[in-house]
Amino acid sequence: MPSDRPDDRPALDRSSPARTVGRYVLLVVVALIVLAPVWAILMQSLKSGPDSVRHPRSLLPVDLTWDTLRHAWRAGDLGRLSWNSLVMSVLVTAGVLVTSLTAAYAFAFLHFPLRRGLFAVFLATMLVPAEVTILINKRTIESLGWKNSMVGLVVPLLATGMGTFLLRQVFLQLPQELREAASLDGLGHAKFLWEVAAPLSRPTLAALGLLTFLTTWNQYLWPQSVVDDTAHRTLQIGIAHLDNGRVDNINLVTAGTVIAALPIAVMLIAFQRHLVRGLTAGAVKG
C-alpha cells in the first residue's frame, strides 16, 4: 500500500487519485441506498391516482404532477396544521433554550447546597420514558383546563434535562476567570449570562435549538393525547388522518409525509454546519 507511506503532500490531501475515486464511488453508492426510500416516496407523491401503486413505472420520474400534493394539502387541511406545528415548535424551542440556559448557568457557575444531587435529578429525568409521563400528564393538563390549547401542548415540553446537560458542559469549559473578571466589573448574573455566557455558547445553542425544533415538530403521541378538537391538531396527526383506509389512496399519505418532512429537510440543509459545530462544542467532550 504505497499511499500509506508518509509523503510530503499536505496532510489532508494525501490519498492517491485511485483511492479518491474509490471513496467517491463508495460515497455515491451509500448515498443512493440512504436516499432510495426518500426517492420512492417522492415519486409516489408526484404521481396521480391509483396507478402509482404496485407498478414499476411508479418509481420512474414520468408523468409527474402536483395534484396529489395539492390534494393532500387541501384534504388534510395541512396549511392550518403546519401553522399549529410551527407555533408549537417555535415556542417549545424558545422555552427550552431559555430554561436550559438559566438552569445550566446555575449548575455551572453558582454554589448552593444540594447542587450535585439536584443535577443528578435533572440528568435522571432524561431516562424517564414518555410512556410513563404521558399517561399522567394528559390528566394534569386536563385538570388545569389546558386540553385543546396551545398552552397545554407546549408547557410540559418546555424544560429538558438534556438541554441543561449540554449547556452546562459548555459553560464548564469557559475559563473560570471570565466569571471572576465579570464579577469584578460589577456584572450581575443575569447580565453575565446574556452578554457573555450565552453568546459564547452560540454553536451549542444552535444545535440544541435545531434538535428541539426537530423533535417537537415530529411529536405524535403527546399532541394526540391532549388535543381532540380539529383546531389544535398538529401536522403529524394530520398525516395519520390522511390514511383513510383506502388502498388506492396510499399516495395521499406519502404526499403528506413529504409535506411534513420538507421544512425540516430544508432547515437541516441550511443549518447543518451549526448542528455539527454545536455538538462538537458540547456533548462530545465528556
Binding site: 391516482g49 391509483p50 396507478d51 401503486v53 383506502r246 388502498v247 388506492d248
Partner: peptide, 8 residues
C-alpha cells in the same frame, strides 16, 4: 366497487 371502477 368504487376502487374497482377506478380501474386500478
Amino acid at each position: 366497487l368504487t376502487i374497482l371502477k377506478g380501474g386500478q
